[in-house]
């Protein structure tokens, strides 16, 4: 089975992606070449990552055998936030296996991670989604702990380049966003505390008004009780007076 890049074909280019399993099958299938994959990544980043996914980034991994492509792609993506370009330190079977693992994971995560790239088994450049830790080191999704993308045995120039890109991500991305987050919380705390003092004042006023009203109601109730008692006494006196009057008139 022969694969072609659907985007290349649409542009009238050959876009041959090579043979795929099953090899006996003479029909054609379609995929996407790495150049078009990078184009679509650029388009996605231009749209902006969803706010809910600030921790998502992308790792562009270039085959170790293609130093030329690494230079080219690094140059293109050097100043793009959320993206790092690294040389794959794996070779042969391990690389193919790793690509499979990532391909499977991405298919499994298709629902939560809408941006899905093929595994790039036959291509010198692949794109991997990565999770960026809150402060610091970017780590490929599911990569083993402590597995730096560039081996410690890599040449100093390459390690420096890697380190500069990572440090730039920290100093220009993570640290400013930490500061911004601190400022957001500071503003939110100030706002909430001002609302709190306002609410305390309101509550105090309400309690005072209520206490005054309770006092007036109590006084009225007391006065009315006294008036009712006085009225009853007056009626009793009146009755006695009437009895006496009747008695006197009878004599």
């Amino acid at each position: 089975m022969r694969a072609f890049c659907a985007w290349c074909v649409a542009e009238g280019k050959p876009g041959d992606l090579g043979e795929r399993e099953p090899l006996a099958d003479p029909s054609e299938t379609h995929g996407i070449c790495w150049r078009h994959r990078l184009d679509s990544l650029a388009a996605v980043l231009k749209e902006g990552l969803p706010d809910a996914e600030p921790s998502i980034g992308f790792l562009i991994v270039v085959a170790r055998t293609r130093q030329d492509l690494f230079e080219e792609v690094s140059e293109q993506w050097l100043s793009v936030p959320h993206v790092r370009v690294v040389l794959d330190r794996r070779h042969g079977e391990r690389r193919a296996h790793r690509a499979d693992v990532h391909g499977d994971r991405r298919r499994a995560d298709r629902r939560t991670a809408p941006v899905v790239f093929d595994d790039g088994r036959h291509q010198p450049v692949m794109v991997l989604p990565i999770k960026r830790a809150a402060v610091a080191v970017e780590e490929p999704v599911g990569a083993g702990r402590g597995e730096a993308p560039v081996a410690e045995t890599a040449p100093p120039r390459e390690r420096f380049r890697e380190w500069i890109v990572a440090s730039r991500a920290i100093t220009q991305g993570t640290v400013p966003s930490m500061l911004a987050e601190r400022d957001r919380w500071s503003a939110r705390a100030a706002e909430a505390e001002s609302q709190l003092s306002q609410a305390r004042g309101d509550l105090e006023d309400l309690a005072l008004t209520l206490a005054g009203l309770h006092g007036r109601n109590d006084r009225l109730t007391r006065q009315q009780t006294e008036a009712a008692q006085a009225l009853a006494a007056a009626l009793r006196h009146m009755k006695r007076a009437m009895d006496l009057t009747n008695l006197a008139q009878g004599e």
Binding site: M178, W185, E193
Partner: peptide, 22 residues
């Protein structure tokens, strides 16, 4: 910076809870 952010977060959330209660 992280401690300060945590402290501010704590203050903000406490004050917001208290405002709701009041």
């Amino acid at each position: 910076l992280l401690d300060e952010r945590d402290e501010l977060m704590r203050r903000a959330l406490n004050a917001e809870d208290e405002v709701t209660r009041l």
